[in-house]
Design a protein around this nucleic acid. Structure first.
Lengths: 335, 335
DNA sequence: CTGAAAGCGCTAACAA
DNA sequence: TTGTTAGCGCTTTCAG
């Protein structure tokens, strides 16, 4: 039905091999021949079949993006970086969302995407996840964000340091009763979250402060979850004077709760988030800024390089975080 | 290198045809044979090649998502809905971001995706865009959001009504000097924006109000653009008392500017946004709520249906918007 | 219900 | 520089 290389070959009066070569701009084609083939292709409105090319070359011309969520701001920012990097090359992006890591997805990503892409970008999935083990078995290029390890290339940030630096700051300001809004109970999207827990513990231990369990509540990484978490915290007999949230989005929810109760962030209760989203400036929220766009771009670049030269030299890039202090954190004395 | 149907056939002692049929669960296969084939496939860790299947059947098993931006909250919400709908079926999602509609992209979407997907989801691209014309020529299933027309199925909202309703409200509250923060000058991502312009005009005309050009400024659909727009508006000799913004994100930026100048939204200047993002509740921003998740899910569903039964029955679904009033809008008397 | 065989559209040796 | 030819891995008539 549609125009194929065979048609072009016939019309242009050359072989299909030459057509193929001309189309892909090989040096070994007479400029005149190439021009002619291209002209015919244009005229017949030829559109190649990636499936056929993929079958023939073994390369799919696309990469798979595996992520547990698409509705978080951090994802959006990483995607933005990835997309920018990919647009230059002619590589397509296939999105595979695993959904909540706890509930099993119909078809595991490795089965679904395996022969369909040339490599994988894995965001925020724990390296120990069974799905990933299968993925590694495929022995294809993979770049991960959020987990590190010798198996693959990775781009990550020092979450432990980022978290402890933030909490240090709270402690410096005189807070001793510090609450924590983390993501989920027994989450296997883990590493990232685990490191932040460690950072929190580091800072608290160094200062000789206690970490009572009732001061640590889950916020599901959503705004509404953060709002509920803050409610739980405030309903405590002896609420915290400061709160560290594992994400800005949860912190936004927490601020919402504060406002609802006529409490002022930074005065009545200090709060500090994590991610450094644009909105945080507006809300005057202190936060640990994470360069997500850069992370996305870097990871994509690395994956493309790994795909190109199969010289599987796994690298681990660490990108910096930065503590951005704003009005939502203040000395406890101000109370 | 990897396990193919041929291998399965050999090991299972049947023909490749039977393997193929068994794998896809055809009725016409002896249950016993099927079980056996499946068992062998499992044991050999068989993973099929979508490229080969696609080449053979002509169906790609994926759809293409074409959008000019990935870094807007509205996109994120639509993607969320799309993804949810797609996950049930075994359809992959290919992301094609055209980038700024004004600067030309390397390879037009129709060439890039044509034979690679079974249908297209087009978000917020003007139907008149040359890229889309090419896309329509392909004569493949397409569902659009943001533009309507007899050519394809579409899902959209009544932007004209949404905008006029919002402005009506401002007028009711006594505002007569109403500013507008729109997207871009001469944008061809158009329809959506154009309709909102019409709605603004409708409301203003009905009330017999003027629309001085200096009160209409572009905000690029970004937060920082919105902040700049509001600055321009406030620097006017006679600034507006109310502002209608074509998006919540721009409104956030506008609020930021207001805060910077110690002005209180709703008291010193009324402002109303468009989109109904979650964050708007926190900022107490009045807004026109748009059900983006639902739009995404509906569009995806429709496309899948169109792909399934080629009974190309184009439909146009209109989803409702809702005016959500909050503290950022107040009577002019309050000044 | 199963098998044999002919492609789907393109690429990659190998020759010429 | 160009052509010939043999697949890539799967599906699908058409027989049996």
């Amino acid at each position: 039905m549609s125009v194929t290389v065979k048609d072009l070959a016939r019309v242009a009066g050359v072989s299909t091999a030459t057509v193929s070569r001309a189309l892909r701009g090989f040096e070994s084609v007479d400029p005149e021949t190439r021009r002619h083939v291209l002209e015919v292709a244009e005229r017949l409105e030829y559109v190649g079949s990636p499936a056929a090319a993929a079958l023939s070359t073994g390369r799919a011309g696309s990469i798979g993006l595996i992520t547990p969520f698409v509705d978080r701001m951090a994802f959006q920012r990483m995607l933005s970086g990835i997309e920018r990097e990919l647009r230059a090359e002619s590589i397509d992006l296939l999105l595979y969302c695993t959904g909540d890591p706890s509930d099993p997805h119909p078809v595991p990503p490795h089965k679904r995407l395996a022969r369909r892409v040339d490599g994988f970008l894995v965001l925020s999935v724990a390296a120990e996840s069974p799905d990933l083990e299968e993925l590694f078995k495929l022995d294809m290029p993979v770049t991960m964000f959020g987990a590190k390890g010798p198996w693959t290339s990775s781009v990550h940030i020092d979450d432990r340091l980022g978290a402890s630096t933030a909490v240090d700051r709270l402690i410096e300001q005189g807070h001793t009763r510090i609450g924590l809004i983390y993501g989920r109970e027994a989450d296997n999207s883990g590493v990232l979250e685990f490191e932040r827990h460690l950072g929190f513990r580091d800072a608290m231990s160094r200062a000789g402060l206690e970490r009572p369990v009732e001061l640590q509540v889950p916020g599901e990484f959503t705004m509404s979850g953060g709002a509920r978490a803050m409610e739980a915290l405030l309903d405590l007999g002896d609420p915290p004077t400061a709160v560290f949230s594992f994400s800005d989005e949860m912190a936004y929810g927490a601020i919402q709760t504060l406002k609802k109760r006529n409490l002022v962030p930074g005065r009545d209760l200090s709060i500090i988030g994590y991610d450094g989203h644009e909105m945080s400036a507006l809300l005057d929220l202190s936060t640990v800024s994470v360069p997500f766009e850069l992370i996305g771009a870097t990871a994509a670049r690395k994956l493309l390089d790994d795909i190109r030269d199969a010289g599987h030299n796994k690298t681990a890039t660490v990108l910096p975080t930065e503590l951005t202090l704003r009005g939502s954190t203040g000395p406890i004395a101000a109370r």
